[in-house]
Nucleic acid binder design. Structure first.
Lengths: 159, 159
DNA sequence: TTCATTGCAAATCCTTTGCATCTCG
DNA sequence: CGAGATGCAAAGGATTTGCAATGAA
């Protein structure tokens, strides 16, 4: 039973401001999205809505709603060298960047304020006015790395 | 007359190692890619090859070759919240990250070793073994920012 | 000669859109 | 009631792939 009353209010006000409507589909999606903190893609969400057996929501509406949630800052949307977008709920003070394991696909979040500071410094240097940033590190998590070590038959040639 | 003999050698050896062939299409693409240091997408490259009037190369081959060049580390491939991949040649010691202007699309490169260091620290903290990373900051360049300031009719409501 | 490569067109993948039908406000 | 929303299926755009013909080693 996650509490998403705050998000619901933010969303409703955002919609009102834009002259849009608070429909049951939109509310159901918001609820589902804020019920976990996992990363997900549009397809995952379509499936989850289907399985939940509650309000039925079409794929088109899922995409349209994710767009709105992204626009009002409740949902983050990232696509890094991938076919599809990955989404995640955003809550106050939860900003973070990502470690992505190319072995098992696991996504780990990290926060490093000192990096954020340096970013700002870089922007000042260029007179650049940042709106958002994405910072992802790809590699192997400890588990996949260990596996890779073991199954390596011989040394690789250097790059 | 850019010198790309080193890259050509790297590519040839990479191909040989994999039992692949050094065709004139592949060589022509390598040459074209290393003739400038601009960012480009697959379409740009197709056009450039067409205009150059040299070796004709089909779109499919462009994609297939970019994949190989990326695999052997000669070409970087990044897609951040965009429809298509953006490529760039990679040369030793030229690593950098990107400032992307959402106003005019301009891409600026920046290098900040202190950020790289902090990244490594983060990875150590998670026992994560990095292979690559992408770090992009989106916002407005000074020119677009100035334009936006001028055309703003009134204050925006806070988020 | 032989096996990889090429170009073409068709296929894929994810996402967006047009339109007739519903529904919130 | 009327503007906006939904669902469906069809459209879109970038990238990938099957296959017959071509070419590098």
């Amino acid at each position: 039973m996650a509490d998403f009353s705050e998000e619901r209010q933010i969303f409703t006000e955002f919609l009102k401001r834009k002259g849009l409507k608070t429909t049951r589909e939109r509310t159901a999606l918001l609820k589902e999205i804020f019920s976990t903190h996992k990363h997900f893609d549009a397809d995952d969400l379509v499936d989850r809505m289907r399985e939940m057996g509650g309000q039925k929501v079409s794929r088109a509406t899922v995409y349209r709603t994710l767009e709105l949630l992204h626009e009002c800052g409740l949902v983050g949307r990232v696509r890094l060298n991938e076919e599809k977008y990955r989404y995640e709920r955003l809550r106050k003070g939860e900003h973070h960047d990502h470690l992505i394991c190319t072995g098992c696909g696991k996504v780990m979040e990290f926060a490093e304020p000192r990096i954020e500071e340096l970013q700002e410094e870089v922007c000042r240097r260029w007179d650049f006015h940042p709106i958002s940033h994405a910072h992802q590190i790809r590699g192997l998590c400890s588990i996949c790395h260990r596996k890779a070590e073991k199954s390596r038959p011989e040394r690789q040639q250097p790059a």
